[in-house]
Design a protein around this nucleic acid. Sequence first.
DNA 1: ACCATTATTGCAAGTCTCTTGCAAGTAATA
DNA 2: TATTACTTGCAAGAGACTTGCAATAATGGT
Lengths: 140, 140
Amino acid sequence: MLETIISQGLKATGRRMTRTRKAVLSLLERTHEPLSASEIFAQLQEDQVTIDLVTVYRTVNVLKDLGLVAQLDLHHEGQSRYELKEGRKHHHHIRCQVCGKIVDLLLCPLKKLTKLIEERTKFVVGDHILEFTGFCPQCQ
Amino acid sequence: MLETIISQGLKATGRRMTRTRKAVLSLLERTHEPLSASEIFAQLQEDQVTIDLVTVYRTVNVLKDLGLVAQLDLHHEGQSRYELKEGRKHHHHIRCQVCGKIVDLLLCPLKKLTKLIEERTKFVVGDHILEFTGFCPQCQ
DNA sequence: ACCATTATTGCAAGTCTCTTGCAAGTAATA
DNA sequence: TATTACTTGCAAGAGACTTGCAATAATGGT
């Protein structure tokens, strides 16, 4: 179970599994869109979980440090979104610029490109962001 | 000359060419890295141009509305950068995560991918962001 | 060249996302 | 159950960006 796996990661870095971390994890686990900190906060409020927005930020940052959560910066959104990486391949997203719906793109076309970039620029390529916007079927 | 071209775009939308717009344009024209609003502000201060940071934001937004400037959201930078589009092909960037240096990548591998995404998701794909981070030759 | 019109600017203040300091609360270990 | 030190919540702060409004300045007509 996810909570057990993550408990170990926390312990290994001198951290603890807490009520609030469980709540954030369980929300991310059952949600199928990447969530912003304020959305996590609002949803947990609705679920009667007592948590501060600051704690949400601290929690997603811990999970990111552990490599368990990906932080996404979508196109001009002005806020980050978070999704569980556990058991999922690296992938990208498309977001509807009308209704905000986000859909996973289960592909990444950049492996070959990375080599080409390293040759041309002499950079060592680390990470990349690739995010699309457009109009979803309902909003066209 | 760029200023003439842009004057026409401004006029066509009921706007005016002003001292501050000229200053921002001329800075973007002679700078070869995408600049953030605060960098534009700081550089113009140094150049003895009197301008407010608010005006910088308003100016880059006007230029963006006219389609003359691209707004870039680089990886987890927490601020946007702006560069002139005039006379340049669509392209992407790589940014050194140590020194912040930004280099243009004069390519975009996403034309074919766009079609594939439209088929799979039924979205109409609009724009995309693709930005790399890594280590530049000096910082490796 | 001057005036009237109206876009633009600068300043102050506000919004939003995210971070930090610190005292109080709580998980982990003996 | 007591000790230790990690976590939390609250208040306050930082940074990017926006908005309201009166003063300023660019345009177009005379």
